[in-house]
Structures are given as structure tokens and as C-alpha cells.
Simulated assay, not measured.
Amino acid sequence: MKTLKTAKCGETVVVQKLDGEGALRRRIMDMGITKGTSIYVRKVAPLGDPVEITVRGYELSIRKGDAENILVE
């Protein structure tokens, strides 16, 4: 299974699972990223950090470290 970090620009993926514990997991869920949610990868910064995504109709920038904890299909 791949992570959001490895998703390519212009790709639409679906969240399968959230890794991480406690506050990190809670913060990701508070951003609207939950199991079954579609995420469109809009841009990836030249050095890979941050990743700009569209989730639930709004734009969001997420750190590479956080994107590693989001397993997608």
C-alpha cells in the first residue's frame, strides 16, 4: 500500500488507513482526512515538502512527515 507522500501530482487517491498515534492522528482527522475520503494531489513543492491537496472541497498543505502516515489506494 502506498502513502500520500508517494502519490503523484494530479492523482486522486482514497484514504485507506491512518497510521500514527494520539495527537498526530487527531490532527490529521481534524483536517477532514478520514478513511474513505478522496484526496486530489494538486502540487508537490520542488523539495517535496509540503504537499498541496484538495480534500472535501478545500485546499490544504500538508507536511511530508504527516503525509507518510496516510495510507492511500
Score class of each variant (00 low, 15 high):
M29T: 15
M1N: 05
R26H: 09
I53P: 01
S38M: 12
K35G: 02
I28N: 00
E11L: 07
P46Q: 07
V14A: 04
L47T: 13
S38E: 14
M31R: 11
M31H: 13
I62T: 03
I70H: 00
V72Q: 03
A67T: 00
E52F: 07
L60C: 10
G65L: 10
T3M: 02
G10M: 04
R26Y: 04
I39D: 03
S61P: 00
G36L: 12
C9F: 03
I62W: 04
G22I: 04
G57Q: 01
K64L: 07
K43P: 00
P46M: 07
D66M: 05
G10C: 03
K2R: 15
C9R: 11
E68N: 04
K17Y: 10
G48S: 00
G10R: 02
I28L: 14
S38A: 11
T54D: 08
T34L: 13
K8N: 08
K17L: 10
G57V: 01
D49N: 15
P50Q: 03
I70W: 00
V55H: 04
K43L: 10
G10F: 08
A67F: 00
G65I: 13
R63A: 11
M1C: 06
S38P: 13
G22R: 13
A7R: 04
R63F: 08
K2E: 07
V44C: 12
L47W: 05
L47Y: 05
T12L: 08
V13N: 05
G65M: 11
K2Q: 12
K5N: 06
R56T: 08
M31Q: 14
D66F: 04
D19F: 12
T54S: 09
V44P: 04
V14F: 08
R27W: 10
P50Y: 03
R27M: 13
I53G: 00
E11G: 05
A23Y: 12
V41M: 07
S38T: 08
I33K: 08
E21G: 06
D19A: 06
R63Q: 10
G32Q: 06
T6L: 10
G20R: 04
A45G: 01
R26D: 09
E68S: 04
I28Y: 02
G22E: 14
